[in-house]
Computed example of a mutant assay.
Amino acid sequence: MRRHLPWILALTAAALLTLTRTLDPAHALLLPAAALTLHHLWRALDDGDQATWPEPPDETRHGARHDLSDLGWAAFTRDGRVSARVTRRVHAVATHRLAPHGIHLDDPTHHAAAAHLLGTDVVTGLTSRRPPTPRTLHRWLDALDHLPTPPGRPRR
């Protein structure tokens, strides 16, 4: 039945067009026949191969471009200070960079040694909960970038 539905609709349309005297019988048959032909041509056309985009990788590597983009968008709060998320990430980087020196940033007894390498204001800022300004963050990153290589380790 489903296969014959377009034919039934075309003949019904032709009959209605003829009975209502909208079209003469010849044109009343030709109009649904043309529509039926277009329907069959449309169904017969092949869509071809659809090009698809490759799936993005699921894993996110630490320090990947995705992380940098996220940090860039989430860097500042509405009042112009650096967000807590960025401050936590910089604190994690500082902890990682100080570990080869035998310094644990979360241990208050190591703050003097960390201050010797990074500077007192940097260590105070990294260990406080107060959000820094962009200029202060820049100073922290410069201090971490200029951190000396621990003895016995090659610089990357």
Rank of each mutant, 00 (worst) to 15 (best):
R156W: 06
A92D: 15
G48W: 07
L11K: 00
L126R: 08
R2D: 11
H62T: 10
P134N: 07
L117W: 01
A74G: 15
T20K: 07
G152N: 06
W53K: 00
V90I: 15
H27A: 11
V82M: 04
E59Y: 00
L11T: 12
H101N: 03
H138D: 13
A99G: 08
R139T: 15
H40N: 02
W42G: 09
I103K: 03
L19V: 13
D49G: 09
D145M: 02
A94Q: 07
L5Y: 08
L38P: 01
T95E: 10
L41S: 04
L105K: 05
I103N: 05
T87R: 12
R97Y: 04
T87I: 05
P25G: 14
D47L: 06
H138N: 10
R61P: 10
A14D: 05
T133L: 14
R88Y: 09
T149P: 08
P131E: 10
W140H: 12
R81E: 13
L117C: 03
G119I: 14
I8C: 03
E59W: 02
P132H: 11
D106P: 02
L105E: 07
A26Y: 08
G152A: 09
L41M: 07
G152D: 08
R89F: 12
H110E: 05
G119A: 11
R43K: 09
P151G: 00
E55N: 01
R81M: 11
H66F: 09
L137I: 02
R156T: 12
G48V: 08
D79A: 11
W73T: 14
L141E: 08
H116F: 11
A74L: 15
W7V: 14
R135W: 12
L71V: 04
T95F: 00
R43C: 07
D47S: 10
L117R: 02
L38S: 06
V86M: 12
W7I: 12
H96I: 02
P131K: 04
V86L: 14
D145S: 11
R61V: 15
H62W: 02
T52N: 04
R81H: 15
P150W: 06
L141W: 00
A113F: 00
V86T: 14
R155F: 07
R21W: 06
R81F: 11
T77R: 15
G72V: 05
R78D: 15
P6T: 12
G152T: 10
R156E: 09
T136Q: 15
G72K: 01
Q50N: 06
A113V: 01
L16S: 12
R139I: 13
V86R: 02
H91Q: 13
T12N: 05
A75I: 05
T124G: 14
W7G: 06
H101Q: 02
H101C: 06
H96C: 07
T18W: 12
A143H: 07
H27R: 12
L36K: 03
T133N: 02
P56S: 03
L16A: 15
R65W: 14
T109S: 14
L141F: 00
T120L: 15
G80I: 13
P131I: 09
R88E: 13
G102T: 08
A74C: 13
L137E: 01
T109E: 14
H62A: 08
L9N: 05
A99R: 13
G152E: 03
P108D: 11
R65N: 10
H116Q: 11
D145P: 00
V93S: 06
A10M: 01
T37C: 10
L17Q: 09
P151V: 04
A33Y: 00
